[in-house]
Computed example of a mutant assay.
Amino acid sequence: MSTLQQAPIHKLHPTQLTVGMIEVHDKKKHLAALKAAEQLEFMRAHPIPAVLGAGGELYITDHHHLGRAAFEAGVDSGFFEVEADFSHLSGDAFWLAMDNKHWVHPLDENGVRHVYACIPRHLEKLVDDVYRSLAGYVRNAGGYDKTPTAFAEFVWADFFRRNLPLEEVQADFAAAVKAALPLAGSELARGMPGFKSGS
């Protein structure tokens, strides 16, 4: 099942607890610089995968950064690829079905797993994980390959969380990206999704 539909950004429900706000702010800046018609065309060209939940509500399974950025930039609506219809499920049954498909990531900014009820109802409630931003910027810099593996950037975020001190990442993000690049291509990272030897 995959159908494209348009829906208001503010009605989207996340399936994770965190985003990298540095990445969100970059996307927001890009969207805010566009005219309304250009914003709509950009969103149409970048459809967000989603699942139908109880009451026909949309739960997005990827591109949370784009969704949050669009919300903050005042973009009214986006376009969504509906991957599955779980509208007959509610509560934990819905979340268990999502988990079986690897469409939910209830881990916080410290890499700690929480119960499904802790997943926020709205995009503006997602909290910042600076390591998720770091993972995105390292991938963009060629540190590892984009991969269809579910939540691959979060796997990398946890890898960097274990290997780079938080204080250093917060103090100088650009320097942290430079420090993370050789780490991404090292033997420590072998087996990680999208690993590239000697990055």
Score class of each variant (00 low, 15 high):
residue 69 A to P: 00
residue 51 V to H: 13
residue 10 H to R: 14
residue 29 K to E: 10
residue 58 L to C: 09
residue 55 G to N: 12
residue 46 H to N: 14
residue 67 G to W: 04
residue 27 K to I: 13
residue 13 H to R: 14
residue 10 H to Q: 12
residue 50 A to M: 11
residue 56 G to R: 00
residue 40 L to F: 06
residue 19 V to W: 07
residue 57 E to W: 09
residue 34 L to Y: 11
residue 28 K to D: 02
residue 14 P to D: 06
residue 39 Q to W: 07
residue 54 A to D: 09
residue 47 P to A: 12
residue 13 H to Q: 06
residue 65 H to Y: 05
residue 13 H to C: 11
residue 30 H to P: 01
residue 34 L to R: 03
residue 48 I to M: 15
residue 42 F to D: 14
residue 52 L to K: 09
residue 24 V to E: 01
residue 36 A to D: 12
residue 29 K to S: 11
residue 48 I to G: 04
residue 27 K to F: 01
residue 58 L to S: 04
residue 16 Q to T: 07
residue 37 A to I: 10
residue 42 F to K: 10
residue 57 E to Y: 11
residue 36 A to W: 08
residue 40 L to I: 03
residue 39 Q to G: 04
residue 57 E to L: 03
residue 20 G to C: 06
residue 55 G to L: 14
residue 57 E to H: 11
residue 18 T to F: 02
residue 21 M to L: 14
residue 70 A to E: 00
residue 20 G to R: 01
residue 44 R to W: 15
residue 14 P to R: 04
residue 70 A to Y: 00
residue 55 G to F: 10
residue 45 A to E: 15
residue 61 T to S: 03
residue 52 L to Y: 15
residue 48 I to P: 06
residue 24 V to C: 01
residue 21 M to A: 02
residue 12 L to D: 05
residue 19 V to N: 11
residue 23 E to F: 08
residue 39 Q to D: 04
residue 56 G to D: 00
residue 16 Q to H: 10
residue 23 E to N: 08
residue 31 L to H: 06
residue 46 H to F: 15
residue 37 A to T: 08
residue 67 G to N: 10
residue 35 K to C: 10
residue 50 A to K: 06
residue 44 R to N: 11
residue 42 F to A: 14
residue 45 A to M: 05
residue 28 K to Q: 15
residue 23 E to M: 01
residue 65 H to F: 04
residue 59 Y to K: 08
residue 23 E to Q: 03
residue 70 A to M: 05
residue 20 G to Y: 11
residue 36 A to L: 12
residue 18 T to E: 10
residue 18 T to Q: 08
residue 25 H to V: 07
residue 67 G to Y: 05
residue 62 D to I: 02
residue 23 E to S: 10
residue 37 A to Q: 11
residue 44 R to I: 01
residue 27 K to H: 09
residue 47 P to N: 11
residue 37 A to F: 01
residue 44 R to H: 08
residue 67 G to I: 00
residue 18 T to D: 07
residue 37 A to V: 12
residue 41 E to H: 14
residue 22 I to R: 12
residue 56 G to V: 00
residue 11 K to Q: 14
residue 40 L to W: 09
residue 39 Q to P: 09
residue 18 T to H: 07
residue 17 L to S: 02
residue 45 A to R: 13
residue 42 F to I: 00
residue 52 L to F: 15
residue 17 L to T: 03
residue 54 A to I: 03
residue 44 R to S: 09
residue 51 V to L: 08
residue 21 M to R: 02
residue 63 H to M: 08
residue 43 M to W: 09
residue 60 I to C: 07
residue 49 P to E: 02
residue 60 I to Y: 09
residue 16 Q to K: 11
residue 58 L to K: 12
residue 44 R to Y: 09
residue 39 Q to F: 04
residue 11 K to I: 09
residue 32 A to E: 15
residue 53 G to P: 08
residue 59 Y to R: 12
residue 48 I to V: 15
residue 11 K to P: 02
residue 59 Y to N: 02
residue 67 G to M: 03
residue 17 L to Y: 05
residue 29 K to I: 02
residue 29 K to R: 10
residue 18 T to R: 04
residue 62 D to S: 07
residue 27 K to R: 12
residue 32 A to D: 13
residue 17 L to Q: 11
residue 70 A to T: 01
residue 67 G to F: 03
residue 68 R to E: 08
residue 29 K to H: 13
residue 10 H to M: 01
residue 67 G to P: 03
residue 41 E to A: 14
residue 41 E to M: 10
residue 42 F to Q: 06
residue 61 T to V: 15
residue 11 K to V: 09
residue 63 H to N: 11
